[in-house]
Design a protein around this nucleic acid. Structure first.
Lengths: 237, 237
DNA sequence: TCATCTATTTATGTATACATTAATTCATAC
DNA sequence: GTATGAATTAATGTATACATAAATAGATGA
């Protein structure tokens, strides 16, 4: 069991930043973390009242949080049974990866076209090196963290906030499935090579090449995940 | 002035369908329509209390609606000034079109790869024909409607709900700018040719071709719009 | 006249109260 | 024993109440 994935750690400060967060904001983050950390597994139901007691506040801010989670596609709200954590099926994963593939490969293209600064390239390369090193140590959690960092860096460098936000939202939907399959999938050796090739394409400002490389990379990763889920009979995650 | 664009008409029934909608749902739809119809123009501010009176309900459901609109990226909520309709700058439009381009061209690729049924192809062709016919009558609103229909059809045929939802959300963000520039932009003659070529590519199941054609189409459209906004000095829409 | 400090107003964030409606339980009839 | 239906319970959706914090106005001093 990983030592609790550092969940929702990347783009979570989407909201009010400075002043102490409202209860509604705390409720939103708490519930989201419970879901991402699988403490509220897929299919869990939680009544407003229960959540309110658990979080030590009244129903009002809890309800607001639940509405936001619904809007994020993490839960559904069923009239009489509170919120229900949405299971992610392999079909859902396929959808998610199709969109992520389109967006991230567009990001790769954009970054390559604009060109990355030496520092930015160095950061990308460092992430790849960390992936490689972690994999050498058989540290899958370390690999996953570095992989996440690489992808997020790439998306960030594209400089499109809407793209970032969409990627982050879909990434959160896919999170549980990724964690679950991390130790069941084949060693991500090719993945590292793909990333290195992507960095090279960006470095030589080969926009079309960067797009293709990342498109194939993501497509493969998505297919692997979908197949794995199907093969394991994990219809729901 | 167009006879009131048929706003939010495409994928708006995202929520509860049957039973009469809650006040929160009504508030959400009403406010969204006010924004899309430019009755609450960019920069408008609206207090919870004001909105509540206007809609004949209490603050509670109104607040819920505003939270959802914030989550949708349509408004921001400023601690002391109610919700504020977010202006869309040309930089925002560039972001939006970058993402739409990536997603819709992926959709085109997917549809071409899977292949469209005769009926589906006929629907696409009918939309193109309507665009052509409307343009012949100098009916720009008719053209816009047919164009919208074509794009939505394409996205729908891709059969990826998450992709649909993202496209629809970004489309709503871009709506005001599109309406505003409809009569200021050059006649969309090339647009029709692009669409026809896309349908042809889909018909011959040329996935890569379909992607390229639509990618270029959307890129051109986006650049035209961004340039137009800049040229007109419309920093905000 | 201008600046600063205080008091008041006002919008929000949250809690609570209440009506509605769906589910469950219990009783009664067959 | 089963089924029907009434009554009770429970969860939501909405309204309202209230405390807090921010903006404004007003007053006081120079």
């Amino acid at each position: 069991m990983p030592p609790m994935p550092n969940v929702a750690t990347l783009p979570s400060e989407a909201e009010g930043d400075a002043g102490r967060p409202s209860n509604a904001e705390r409720a939103y983050r708490s519930l989201k973390n419970l879901i991402l950390g699988n403490e509220l597994p897929a299919g869990s139901q939680l009544l407003e009242q229960e959540a309110a007691e658990r979080l030590g506040m009244s129903r009002t801010p809890v309800r607001e949080a639940m509405v936001r989670l619904k809007e994020d596609g993490m839960v559904e709200i069923r009239p009489r049974h509170g919120m229900r954590v949405l299971p992610v099926s392999s079909a859902d994963m396929r959808e998610i990866y199709e969109v992520l593939t389109a967006l991230e490969s567009a990001a790769a293209e954009m970054v390559a076209r604009r060109g990355a600064s030496p520092t930015e390239l160095a950061n990308l390369r460092a992430a790849v090196a960390d992936m490689e090193e972690a994999l050498g140590r058989d540290d899958l959690d370390g690999w996953a963290a570095a992989d996440k960092r690489f992808h997020w860096l790439l998306v960030t460098l594209a400089g499109n906030e809407r793209l970032q936000q969409t990627v982050s939202q879909l990434g959160e939907q896919a999170h549980r499935a990724r964690v679950l399959t991390l130790r069941l999938r084949p060693k991500p050796t090719n993945s590292i090579r793909d990333h290195a090739r992507l960095v090279a394409a960006i470095a030589r400002r080969d926009a079309e090449g960067a797009r293709k490389i990342h498109h194939d990379h993501r497509t493969k990763a998505g297919e692997m995940l979908v197949d794995l889920l199907d093969r394991l009979g994990l219809k729901q995650v």
